[in-house]
Design a protein around this nucleic acid. Structure first.
Ligand code: MG
Length: 938
DNA sequence: CTTCTCGTAAACAACA
DNA sequence: ATGTTGTTTACGAGAA
């Protein structure tokens, strides 16, 4: 290329531009000899700088498109000052954002031509003042020596493995300096006839590990004005709101721009610039969302580089994101084909025109080619070239296409994932070296959409809340069995296409809502996840609440209004009779509102109870008896201790079994099922639990109160008596197809029970349980399980709990904290965060609801509640038990619960019945009862 | 200023 | 070993 340089004129499009100082200067080409450019500096933040470019002229250079190797040599000699104008002078026009001071500095450096200066670290580090300094170090000064350009060699993909290392740190060459030495060229096999289209392997600098650092704003600013730019990373969703900053070229649309020019033709078209904009000389430019990079060298490295990492340099800094390699891609001009090309060297590949390109591939760059590296999308823009249009090189037109394995997906399809693989490579491909990378199927990252790529109507986030969306979605697409998470995602994307284009992250919110919002419940299990459905009752109830609330609010407002009026008129002696009304309304206002959950719980409990009650009773009775039997030999422990042990053992058993069942999606009462189906296993569990509890309670003095080995036998005998009366076979099987909602959901909510979770010592290995519940596994195996798990447990205790953050939970709150000020009734503010959940479609009245649930009991029975939260032993032991016993409390609850502890699981198919109560409560109740009876027996 | 609701992230665990 | 699915915590922004 002769020094013909493309010229890009910058224009500040649209308004914002301030009277740009047009600075133009020329540098004697001689000074630049040998290096390409010093170009630089051209990145304007606001960048509206259109470019005018001339492509490197390679007339003398081998023009045929397939001679990479030749290219090399030729280039070496040919490449000169790309930035020079026709006269051989370097022309530089800087964007308005640069001030004179900047220029003067630049010039100064140029003049000095002092290599040392450019290499010095001081210099590097000095570019920190965004306002006054320009970082010359890496960027501008970073010239691509001709050799460097040549380094691009066609190599077999497979071989790319060995990275050729070069010393990047080395240097930044300045004008007059010869770089030749610094660029070590690795020429391996300059294969005579590499075909261009094949992947070209570029030498890659070895990545030296450096700690990633955060980029501060300052730096960002700095980068804006340098070639080394750090694009601003967008926040999720931010993309939507972003104004089309600098993107000069709007239409991504087409690529109709057959603007392919035959190689070798220098192009010097100038963009239609609005006006007085400064001109920038460049071959091309890269339009990022928030800045523009001008390609003023024939070779530019695009990669990661955090602010303080001076170990390497990049021409285009994509920020610190680890998903981007230090040298992730490079743009270079291929004299053979006469166009710029992009080589992907980064491990994670990149998207080029929406097609995923794996590492090691090189694709041609045409005007408006879209590129995405990591999470950063940008576009390659060539200067407009009116004249050369005709040249649409057919041949090279689409190497890309040919290389691409077009697999499914239409271009417009969001999230499409075509990809280019360095596919079938010859034999050598599989060599060990190659193996490391070759083997792993690259995970195709998600495509990031640019504003322009998203249909206008889908650029903004729907205002509806997630709960509303979910409700809508489920109503629309769900079947009786519910819909899986992935289906929900798809449904949402369908309903609100915004979610097809926006960055991920919303899925997390969706899951969060499904879990927390009581309007959504797990209906049935299928494979790995659950099928989700709506809890219409809950939703309806909440609606009601809400309505009431709003009415109240209105009433209040009116009252206030009236009051005001009254006062005003009072003076006028005009008594209003509205007062009365007001008063009456007020009373309503004060009326205690009921919790949704409470209400629902009551209703549901009523319906259910009958069904489950008997089973629960039967199960509890069985458990009690078994426990007593197991511990006939008290080993000297006092009755009280035994009671404590049994209580705890029971709690552990119930919790663990329930948890295990829940995870398996079992709907009925797992304990009942276990008792009916596999009493031996249940006994083993009990034995293990007793031992664990014993160890805990006695602080390890007594390790094994019962011998698991001998327990199973007893079970069978006992079972006979407890066999279930009427009920049909329990539904325990994991694959319970239909069963709609179920109590399990309730149990799920109970999660707060820690012991279920923690593997604390005193707990036994739940895995044994899961074995039983596993779809088809036999419950067997067991004995060992029980035995083994127990021991470990010993030391700690229930009390040890994580309790990360006390405050804020629904439950906790209600009891402890709340009492405090908050005026309102019981329901008051329980659960701050958690509360967020509900509020589905319409809004939510959440707090009431949420809190209600948890707190429903809270009010009345501190005891049970407390227990839930902390399953501390204390609670569990006898004394507490007694309290519970008396627990009486809970009026409202009482009604529901009074009966028994039923619920540990939910049971029956009908989901309506589901009781909302927390499992823990149930458990506690159960425990209490059991304990009581245990004590009696003892 | 506090409370509540929502959205967003993310840690974790259980699974597949 | 990795990706999904669920559950929870945290935290911040807004509205009330
Ligand atoms: Mg839910």
């Amino acid at each position: 290329m002769d020094g013909e340089m493309a010229i890009m004129e910058s224009s500040n499009h649209v308004g914002t531009s301030s009277p740009t100082t047009e600075t133009q200067f020329t540098i004697d080409s001689s000074a630049l000899k040998d290096q390409e450019t010093k170009e630089s500096i051209t990145n304007s933040p606001t960048s509206e700088v259109p470019i005018e470019t001339k492509l490197p002229k390679s007339s003398d250079i081998v023009t045929e498109e397939k001679h990479p190797q030749n290219t090399t040599t030729d280039i070496e000699n040919e490449v000169e000052n790309p930035v020079t104008d026709d006269n051989g002078n370097l022309k530089l026009e800087l964007p308005d954002n640069l001030d004179n001071a900047d220029f003067s500095k630049l010039l100064e450096f140029d003049a000095k031509n002092d290599e040392a200066l450019f290499n010095s670290n001081e210099l590097l580090s000095h570019t920190m003042d965004p306002v006054n300094n320009i970082d010359l170090t890496h960027d501008h000064s970073r010239e691509v020596s001709s050799k460097e350009d040549i380094n691009i060699e066609p190599v077999n993909p497979d071989e790319d493995e060995r990275e050729k290392t070069q010393d990047n740190t080395a240097a930044v060459k300045t004008e007059g300096i010869k770089n030749s030495e610094d660029t070590s060229i690795q020429k391996d096999e300059p294969t005579a006839d590499a075909i261009y289209t094949d992947v070209h392997k570029l030498s890659v600098n070895k990545d030296t590990e450096t700690l990633p650092t955060l980029v501060d704003e300052k730096n960002n600013m700095l980068h804006m004005r340098n070639n080394s730019i750090t694009p601003i990373m967008f926040q999720q969703h931010e993309l939507v709101g972003q104004p089309p900053q600098n993107t000069v070229t709007e239409n991504n649309s087409t690529d109709a721009e057959t603007t392919q020019r035959k190689l070798s033709e220098p192009i010097d078209a100038s963009l239609p610039l609005p006006n007085e904009q400064p001109t920038i000389f460049a071959y091309a430019r890269l339009d990022f969302q928030s800045f523009t990079f001008y390609v003023q060298t024939l070779h530019a490295i695009i990669g990661r580089r955090s602010e303080n990492d001076f170990s390497h340099k990049v021409d285009v800094n994509l920020g610190p994101s680890k998903s981007i390699s230090r040298r992730h891609a490079q743009i270079f001009y291929n004299f053979g084909t006469g166009r710029f090309e992009l080589s992907i060297i980064g491990k994670n590949g990149a998207f080029v025109d929406d097609i995923f390109v794996e590492k090691g591939n090189t694709v041609p760059l045409r005007n408006k080619t879209k590129i995405q590296i990591g999470q950063i999308p940008f576009q390659f823009i060539l200067p407009e070239q009116e004249r050369n249009d005709d040249s649409k090189s057919p041949e090279n037109a689409d190497i890309a296409e040919s290389e691409i394995n077009t697999r499914n997906l239409k271009k417009n399809e969001p999230k499409s994932k075509k990809k280019i693989t360095t596919g079938a490579k010859p034999k050598k491909a599989q060599t060990k070296l190659a193996v490391k990378k070759e083997k792993k199927p690259p995970k195709i990252p998600k495509k990031v959409y640019t504003l322009e790529e998203i249909p206008v109507e889908y650029r903004t986030k729907p205002t509806v809340s997630y709960s509303a969306m979910l409700t809508t979605c489920i109503r629309k697409y769900s079947t009786a069995k519910g819909m899986s998470l992935s289906e929900i995602y798809a449904g949402i994307r369908e309903l609100f296409p915004y979610y097809k284009y926006c960055p991920d992250g919303w899925q997390s919110s969706v899951r969060h809502n499904l879990s927390l919002n009581k309007s959504f419940r797990k209906v049935s299990k299928e494979g790995k996840g659950w099928l989700w459905g709506l809890d219409e009752e809950y939703i309806a109830e909440r609606e009601r609440q809400k309505k009431k609330q709003s009415e109240i609010a209105v009433a209040k407002a009116q009252a206030a209004q009236l009051k005001l009026e009254q006062q005003q008129h009072k003076l006028q002696q005009v008594p209003q009779r509205g007062k009365k009304d007001i008063v009456s309304q007020r009373s309503n206002v004060n009326a205690r509102k009921q919790n949704i959950s409470q209400t629902l719980a009551a209703n549901r409990a009523a319906s259910n109870r009958k069904n489950t009650a008997s089973d629960n009773q039967r199960t509890m009775k069985y458990l009690q008896e078994q426990l007593v039997i197991l511990t006939r030999d008290r080993k000297g422990l006092s009755k009280q201790v035994i009671a404590a042990i049994l209580t705890q053992a029971l709690a552990m058993t119930i919790n663990q079994v329930t948890q295990a069942a829940k995870n398996k999606g079992i709907t009925g009462n797992p304990l009942t099922a276990l008792m009916d189906k596999n009493p031996q296993h249940l006994n083993l569990i009990l034995a293990a639990a007793v031992n664990a509890a014993t160890a805990k309670v006695t602080k390890g003095e007594v390790k094994q109160l019962v011998n698991p080995e001998t327990t199973a036998a007893a079970a069978l005998a006992a079972k006979a008596q407890h066999s279930k009366p009427i009920r049909q076979p329990i539904v325990q099987t994991p694959h319970v197809p239909d069963r709609p909602p179920s109590q399990l959901s309730a149990s799920a909510s109970s999660h707060p029970n820690n012991y279920l979770h923690d593997k604390q010592p005193g707990s036994f290995d739940p895995s044994s349980l899961s074995r039983f519940f596993q779809p088809r596994q036999n419950a067997r195996a067991t004995s060992s399980v029980a035995a083994t798990s127990v021991p470990a447990a010993a030391s700690q205790n229930v009390d040890a709990q994580p309790k990360p953050k006390p405050a804020q939970d629904n439950d906790l709150e209600s009891e402890s904290g709340t009492s405090s000020s908050s005026s309102s009734s019981s329901e008051s503010g329980s659960e701050s965060d958690s509360g967020s959940d509900d509020g589905s479609a319409s809004g939510s009245g959440d707090n009431s609801s949420t809190s209600s649930e948890s707190e429903s009991e809270s009010e009345s029975d501190s005891g049970s509640e407390v227990d839930e939260k902390n399953n501390k032993n204390e609670k569990i032991d006898s004394e507490s038990i007694k309290n519970n016993e008396s627990k009486d409390d809970i009026p409202s609850k009482d009604e529901n619960s009074s009966n028994d502890n039923r619920e540990i699981s939910k049971t029956d198919e009908e989901g309506h019945d589901s009781k909302r109560r927390k499992v823990s409560e149930d458990i506690n109740e159960g425990i209490t009862e059991v304990n009581v009876s245990v004590e009696e027996k003892l």
